[in-house]
Structures are given as C-alpha cells and as structure tokens.
Amino acid sequence: MASSINNRKPSEIFKAQAQLYKHMYAHIDSMSLKWSIEMNIPNIIHNHGKPISLSNLVSILQIPSSKIDNVQRLMRYLAHNGIFEIIKNQKLENEEEEEAYALTVVSELLVKGTELCLAPMVECALDPTFSSSFHKFKKWIYEEDLTLFGVNLGSDFWEFLNENPKYNTMFNDAMASDSKMINLALKDCDFVFEGLESIVDVGGGNGTTAKIICDKFPKLKCVVFDRPKVVENLSENDNLTYVGGDMFTSIPKADAVLLKWILHDWTDKDCIRILKKCKEAVTSDGKRGKVIVIDMVINEKKEDNQLTEIKLLMNVSISCLNGKERTEKEWKKLFIEAGFQDYKISPCTELLSLIEIFP
C-alpha cells in the first residue's frame, strides 16, 4: 500500500529514515575514534603483542565495572568500522568464548611512537576548539569574507595559531605526522626530484617532508619556508635550512618549489597569487625550474566511489578555511591564470596526487 507522502512505498520511507539516522549520528564515528586514542588503546594492543581480551583491556584501563559494557559497545562499533578486528578466543571447556581485539592497518596508524602515526592528525582535527566550528555553517554561509574558522574563533586561522602556541604546536605536529606518509610515496616519485640542486618547501612546518627529501637526495639543498613563529629555533644542517616569511610577498629562489597540501587551504584568487610567487622563484637568472604540488585531484569518473566520497567530504571540511579540493579542470585553470604553460599529474598516495607545473 502506498504512503500518502508523495506516493512513496513504506519500504522507501523506512530506508530513507535509516539513512537520515546514519548521518545524524555520524559524529559518533569520529568521537569513538577520538576516545580510542585518548584511552591509548592502539598502543595498549600493540604493547600486548597479541589480540587483547575485553577483560584484560578493561583491567589495564581500570574501567569501573558499571562501564565495562560501554567499552565493549565502543570497541564493537570501532571493529565494525575496520578500526580494530574482533578475534574469538577459545576459553576452557564449558566456558564461553571471549572477544579479543586486534589492530588493523588503520589502527596501526594510531600507535604513538611508531614511524607512521597519524594520531596527531586525528587529535588536531577533533579538538573541540577546531571541530566546534562546523556548528556555525549557517552563520558562515551568509558571511561575505570570513572563513568558518574565522566565524568561530573570532580571528583568521593563521593569526589564531600565531597567538596560541599550544594550538600552533598541535597543528604543526598534525601536519608533520601526515608528512611522514610522503616517505612511502617518494619510493615511486624519485623522478620528480632527480636533477634538482635546490628546492623550497613552502609551508613546510617543522621540516618533516624536507628531511625525508634530504635523506633521499643528500646533494639537494632544501629550504623550509614558513611563518616565522613556525621555523624559529629549529635545527639546521648542511643541506637543510629554515627561512621565515610570507608566501604572498616572496618565496626564496630555487630550482623547484614544493607545495604539499598548501593550495587546498586557499581560494582560487589566493592560489593564483601564491603560484605567481612560486613562478618568480623558479624562473630567476634565466632558469626555468618547476613547481611541485602535492594535493588532491577529484576524479569522480575514474576513481572508486568510496575514494570520491572521502575527497568530497574533505572538500566540505576544508571550507573551514574557505579552501577547496579541486578537479583537474579546476587545477588547470589556476595554472594557466598564474602564467604556467604545462603540467603533469602523477599518483602519489591514495588521496593525493603529485602535480609538476612548468613555467
């Protein structure tokens, strides 16, 4: 029998209700992930050396007996979403099997103290000071110039970081954790840096990416260029130096300029300004170097639907800075308007592409 709501079948309406509830409670995904990191659960399992039973886990965490069931609910949900894996432990005869939890490749990336750890990225993204901004979508939409962070924090995001050392450190640690993933990607991207004598990593933070490049190409001179408060008091060596400044004013000259996950923070107008400064830096003294962009390229026609969903989700997320994730067509438009002649896109990571731009 048809419903009175636009002649929809009850089954259609019930499915729609379930979909609405899924989105309505989607914040539980990120909050349960945050909880697991706050409780140090990935490290507890890692240090245990094998799947850990619920009883052992709650014992280590010193969980009150009244909350053990809640821990199990959270772990079951995280396991359902692929963060952990549930293993059945065979117990003694006449006793029930007890659930045990093992790490997956996802939670391995949350083990603190390991080479590839993205826990700082999660902690930064889910910090209430930043994440609460998304409650201001409606107000932000009607603001002509303010970013979503600006609406919530009361100041420009970068000014906020300059004035709040705690959050500046948190943000830089998050970016550094992500940069370590580049070490894996460079195994297939050596060709991009071959033949270069110098490179400037614009917005390079504490130099994590630059150090990886320097280790791989010891003859390459690397300059990390970022806000003065980011690069002050950082240790240099023979082929790695730090320079403070403003990328909208000028960029140190080099054979190549690297922009890793920088341009997605900015509007098209600002990106063109940045790219023009990059072009000036790589075309001085008659040289014609290149700009290397590591960023997302949305390609709904060719990529997996789930991957596109993640990119579109991050496209909404980066609106907090009035930035955007871009399609190849949108990238090409920026490059042309900034005065570049050609570009080449290569795969980098699952989410990011490597774009070489030539003057």
Rank of each mutant, 00 (worst) to 15 (best):
N6W: 11
N7T: 12
K9T: 09
K15T: 08
M24F: 13
M24A: 12
M31C: 03
L33D: 07
W35R: 02
I37T: 15
P42A: 03
I45T: 05
H46T: 10
H48W: 02
K50W: 05
L54K: 06
L57V: 09
V58N: 03
V71L: 07
R76D: 11
R76Y: 10
I83D: 05
I86S: 08
E98H: 10
E99D: 13
A100F: 01
A102F: 06
A102C: 05
L103W: 07
V106T: 09
A119W: 08
E123M: 13
A125K: 14
P128C: 04
T129D: 09
S131C: 12
S133M: 05
E143H: 15
E144V: 13
L153I: 09
L153D: 06
S155K: 09
F160L: 02
P165C: 10
N172V: 07
A174S: 14
A176H: 00
S177D: 09
S179D: 09
N183T: 12
L184Y: 11
D188Y: 08
F191A: 13
F191W: 07
G195F: 00
E197M: 03
S198F: 03
G204I: 09
G205L: 01
T209Q: 15
P218K: 06
V223K: 15
V223R: 12
V224F: 08
P228K: 04
K229M: 11
V231M: 07
N237R: 05
D238V: 15
S250C: 11
V257M: 00
L259E: 04
I262F: 05
I262G: 03
H264C: 03
W266N: 02
D270C: 05
R273F: 08
L275Q: 02
V282M: 04
T283S: 04
D285F: 06
G289H: 04
V293K: 03
M296T: 14
N305F: 15
L307H: 11
L307R: 13
L312N: 11
N322Q: 02
G323K: 09
K329D: 12
E330T: 04
K332N: 13
L334A: 01
C348Q: 13
E350F: 00
L352W: 11
E356L: 01
E356T: 06
